[in-house]
């Protein structure tokens, strides 16, 4: 092949390569910009609008004239009454409690799976995920059946039970992935140095598993914070969470600006939690690097 021809090939390959690049990148990007990014930005704008007379947002055109009046009313409303902040705090508390119970339940299971023979591991993992493949409502409904006769339905206990049940696999999987990577030689070394079972756990295994715990916690904490179906179906009137507030504004009260404000505040809370969890996981990972 002459060098001129080779150059031609390179150039044409470059061009069609670029074409291929845009052909696969552009359609999904465009779809998601329109149907995910844009709607997310519109929530911000909507939170600054007045509510409309018949629900929704105030119209942008009044008597043919464009109105772009923005207002902080919704934010004033939120911070003006402590009941909304109280519900936020309560939601955080429920999410925290759910996360802690998930850690306690997931740990022995993740450990057992990580220490099982390799061929049995996949089956044990599958058994954790399978109930998770069923519909959210069915899993919540199952607890209505279970807790009804125990007189626990419509209590905070029922809400937390449902939350733990629905989100447990999110904790087991990252924890298992972490525990599986531990080098057994570390525990043997600890034993040789005279550490008992308990000491070996707290001084070796637990610190090493912190990255797994943090990423699992983010996967549990965040969806719990925004959940509305579980408090609505299992909780009483006093067990409302952020998600219920948002749903109420959009579907019952029809105060969309306030609903958008609540969604935005929830988003900020979620981003903060995700950021903290990533930071904590990175920090503890660096710590474990130093150990190994």
């Amino acid at each position: 092949m002459t060098s001129a021809r080779r150059r031609f090939w390179c150039i044409s390959n470059l061009n069609s390569g670029k074409l291929a690049r845009w052909a696969v990148t552009l359609p999904p990007s465009l779809f998601l910009v329109v149907f995910f990014l844009l709607p997310a930005l519109i929530v911000v704008a909507a939170s600054l609008r007045e509510p409309g007379e018949f629900g929704g947002l105030a119209p942008l055109f009044v008597d043919g004239a464009f109105t772009h009046a923005l207002t902080l009313d919704s934010y004033r409303f939120f911070f003006g009454d402590t009941i909304y902040l109280e519900i936020f705090v309560k939601s955080f508390f429920i999410a925290l409690l759910t996360t802690l119970i998930c850690i306690a339940l997931a740990y022995p299971l993740a450990w057992l799976i990580a220490r099982s023979p390799k061929r049995r591991r996949d089956l044990l993992v599958l058994l954790v995920i399978l109930p998770f493949a069923s519909n959210l409502l069915i899993r919540v409904y199952a607890w209505i059946l279970l807790l009804g006769p125990l007189n626990l339905l419509y209590t905070p206990v029922a809400v937390v039970a449902g939350m733990v049940y629905v989100h447990l696999p999110f904790m087991v999987l990252p924890l298992y992935t972490n525990l599986e990577k531990h080098d057994p030689a570390l525990l043997e070394a600890a034993q040789d140095l005279g550490a008992g079972t308990w000491t070996r756990f707290w001084r070796v295994t637990f610190p090493l598993s912190l990255p797994g715990i943090f990423s699992g916690s983010a996967l549990v904490f965040i969806p719990v914070l925004g959940m509305f179906a579980i408090p609505e179906l299992l909780g009483g009137t006093g067990d409302l969470m952020i998600g219920n507030l948002i749903k109420e504004q959009f579907l019952d009260n029809r105060d969309w600006p306030f609903g958008a404000t609540l969604s935005l505040l929830l988003t900020v809370a979620v981003l903060l939690c995700a950021g903290l969890a990533t930071l904590a996981a990175k920090k503890s990972f660096k710590g474990t690097e130093a150990v190994t």
Partner: peptide, 24 residues
């Protein structure tokens, strides 16, 4: 763009799409 809708609470995607479909 592809992974955030998976990671965030579902209610946020639902609400933002409702706003987008109805108001925009």
């Amino acid at each position: 763009l592809a992974l955030t809708p998976v990671a965030m609470p579902e209610i946020l995607l639902g609400v933002s799409l409702l706003l987008f479909f109805r108001q925009v």
